[in-house]
Design a protein around this nucleic acid. Structure first.
Lengths: 339, 339
DNA sequence: TTGTAGGCGTTATCAC
DNA sequence: GTGATAACGCCTACAA
């Protein structure tokens, strides 16, 4: 910076003001400085800036390290978040957090490295949220706790998604519909989508006055296959299934093959939460209520940065957004079979 | 830090030495300091540390923002990298880079924010590599250029993977095998896996003395379907296909359905590069040569940090690793049909 | 082991 | 509009 100042014949501080736009600088001076910076290939040092300004322009993306690894949806989400951060001239650092070892979060808040955090996969009751609030670190949530209060969040509206799935099927004439959900463990840990989608399904089915059945199901092919057979044994008129479980749905299709039923002629399937990339890989291509993951990631980041930039002024009203799922019709759903 | 020193009854500098282990500290003193830190909930400020030590312990993960978004493999990779960084007490910042706008890289190197970079999806001829080398920023590559020189890299051995796929099929009696590759554009931009897998396939087929056919194919279902029909028209004895294209393989299965051929009874399929999570979603479950993506991500990070920690000492020999693919047998490949 | 001082590259608070 | 200069929180000599 000293070199730039010398070369532009101005004081060190003038260079700083020119860079930050903190103070009015005459056009010619600004031009000289600009030129000197380019000639010297000067880039302001982000660390030194952060030290004095207390704003590192780094935000953390908190994600739980899952046993099974993440899917396409999560990847789109992360990509969206990274792009949004770049657009707003921030950096995004990945912060894997084992849910059993939450002390990793102390380092996040204590080190002064990040200005805030975006918390992924928020549960209905989430300790991370409490810790962050205690520590006073600004954050936004992807998903939401059961009592979000005035915390910014963006979430996928799986409840409405489930309703849309039911509506899609009833419009096709189906009058007995099942719902295959995520694993029981997802339910017990309070994974929001699992709980809320189940609610949406139940209400929509009741409102429509159709027969309905629900079942939790392990996230794997074998469990899906078994679940279908069991469901069919108790629901003799079943003609369609709403499934929020990418792996189980494969098992369902296997089971349908076994009893000689064809999709969608004899039985309809609608997936909730599958991304297009995944539903295209299934045969037949799945009808799905696709979450807007990338948009969700972008939103989470923007909400956080908005809040960071508002600090000091009066607190803006919390931004709380539910993104609808998009119905993408594949070839797995069709008119109910006429006996 | 002053507070910690006071509380532990030692000098400020002693606390610093204790934290960094730069100098011998007697056990009792160290314990007192430790205790004081915990009681005060003290965490050294990462930014201040970075400013003076010139080591931020932040590394960048450079990934190209693709049009189509990333898949499961990439996600596993990123997760592996993040975990490895955490283990080595580093932070990983995501750095999306549009390949047409490489000036984004100047900021990476100039800002002094990161100590080094892991470059994903390296091409045979990659400008990013040249830029980083010019800028003098330490980095490791995932994938490799055609002339890696002494740069650290870890790559998946798709050439061997293709050979293994051929070996698997010839062992099952197949004597006329096709290879469906990625899109022509992947070939022209010099995407390593595309080029190297094609080489491996060709050589293995020639060594085994079997009839073989190759084809590039767009990354979508329709292209896969069309490609299969064309391939079959020119290769009348074809009984098996090696496919390195997750979307095209679905189209191939559609095409097989159309002509009434069953997998694996009438025709065998082997995928290269599909992760287990994806191959499990196909019906029948795919036989695949699965890349060890998570391991790859871990390796890339470890290589980079190793180099960073060695700085100053004599340069260690470059670490250059090829990770083999793992053959995971599904139900898409079987003995050749007997006429 | 101690205390102190100089510096890391900025920003912000003063004067002018 | 511009210039000097004290922080920011830490690390590393240095002499004791």
């Amino acid at each position: 910076m000293i070199d730039v100042a010398r070369r532009a014949n101005v004081a060190l501080s003038t260079v700083s003001y020119a860079i930050n736009g903190t103070r009015a600088i005459s056009a010619p001076t600004r031009r000289r400085i600009q030129k000197a910076m380019e000639e010297l290939g000067y880039e302001p040092n982000a660390i030194a800036r952060g030290l004095v300004s207390k704003r590192t322009r780094i935000i953390a993306l908190l994600f739980p390290t899952p046993e099974r690894g993440m899917g396409v949806t999560e990847m789109e989400f992360v990509t969206g978040a990274a792009e949004a951060a770049l657009e707003r001239d921030h950096h995004l650092v990945l912060w894997p957090t084992e849910l059993r070892n939450l002390r990793q979060l102390d380092r996040l808040t204590g080190q002064g490295l990040v200005d805030g955090a975006v918390v992924m996969e928020v549960r209905l009751d989430d300790e991370r949220v409490d810790l962050l609030r205690q520590a006073g670190l600004p954050f936004s949530m992807i998903g939401r706790t059961s009592e979000p209060g005035s915390i910014n969040y963006a979430d996928i509206d799986f409840e409405q998604g489930a309703r849309d799935a039911v509506a899609h099927l009833t419009a096709l004439g189906h009058r007995s519909i099942g719902f295959l959900n995520h694993s029981p463990s997802a339910f017990t840990v309070g994974y929001g989508p699992t709980v809320r989608a189940a609610d949406g399904f139940r209400r929509a089915a009741m409102d429509a006055g159709v027969e309905h059945f629900e079942r939790l199901c392990g996230d794997n092919v074998a469990a899906g296959r078994a679940a279908f057979h069991e469901l069919r044994a108790m629901a003799l008129n079943l003609t369609a299934l709403v499934v929020m479980n990418d792996h189980a749905i494969v098992g369902v299709m296997d089971a349908l093959d076994e009893i000689g039923w064809r999709v969608p002629d004899d039985f309809s399937l609608v997936s909730i939460g599958s991304s297009t990339r995944v539903s295209e890989m299934m045969r037949p291509r799945l009808t799905t209520l696709e979450p807007q993951s990338s948009e969700l990631g972008r939103l989470g980041v923007h909400m956080l940065i908005d809040e960071l930039e508002f600090r000091g002024a009066e607190p803006p009203a919390p931004t709380q957004v539910l993104l609808p799922c998009r119905l993408v019709e594949g070839r797995s759903s069709g008119p109910v079979r006429q006996h």
